[in-house]
Amino acid sequence: MTEFLFFIEVVVSGLLAGTMYSLVALGFVLIYKASSTFNFAQGAMVFFAVLAFVGFMELGLPFIPAFFVAVLLMFFVGFCTERLVLKPLISQSEDTLLMATIGLGFVLEGLAQAAWGVEVRRLDLGIGDFPIQWIIDTAGLFISALDLTASLVAGILIIGLALLFKYTKMGLGLRAVADDPGAASSIGIPLNNIMLVVWSAAGVVALVAGMMWGARAGVQFALVDLALKALPVLIIGGFSSIPGAIVGGLIIGATEKVLEVYIGPFFGGAIEGWAPYVLAIFFLLYRPEGLFGEKIIRRV
């Protein structure tokens, strides 16, 4: 019985950790949905946003104002990206845009480090990364409060974004642009504004994801590498689907924990580093559009 309970615990902690990946993946999906641009800089945006937030707190701003200043900063980043990077590259191939966002990622990483330094910062959200006593007592499971908060925040963000996409006029515009940018702009949907909104929203999502990750692992450069893990999440969930980002994150989180605990010891451990990518390759071979992807990607 304890064996089984342990398995459940591993799966649950994996699922909760997976929501952290989902939070990062969400930013990717937002931008991909609206512009079919794959934003490789999302990881750097996570790092940049949370470092800025911590930086503002260190300047003496209280929590909430610092959060809003960081949000404004991310709006500005989105604005600059749209004007300086995306607009000149409009109607270029997807590969070109992808390379441009890699460049953008380097710019953001460099700027963040130049402005706020390279040392690891602690971020205290007031939520401890320790198991909740109440759950231990009732179910016998060790579940971290931070994990639980992160999944709650992820849930709220997803519901919010889904409502935005589905029921607002702007959401309709977003979907129209995603479908066919040419047609959308010909009937008067302001393409630039839509891009601005999307990049700003992705920036805010990045900030939230960064705060969650930062509270767990410290605000440091490794966040950028963690964000790379969102890539297999996207492949499994599908690039254009918000629910896909969530389910993909859960699958990756649970699978990598289970593999690490039960199979890892046979290989000397630390298979977490590559297992998600290999899982993604299998998905690519059998279901390249992902679980929830809308359109089938171009087979070659």
Partner: peptide, 18 residues
């Protein structure tokens, strides 16, 4: 043989880490 672009990039990242 099956994918390109970002999908291929992720697949090749697997080689890097593996």
């Amino acid at each position: 043989l099956r994918v390109r672009g970002i999908y291929l990039m992720v697949a090749t990242l697997a080689s890097q880490f593996f």
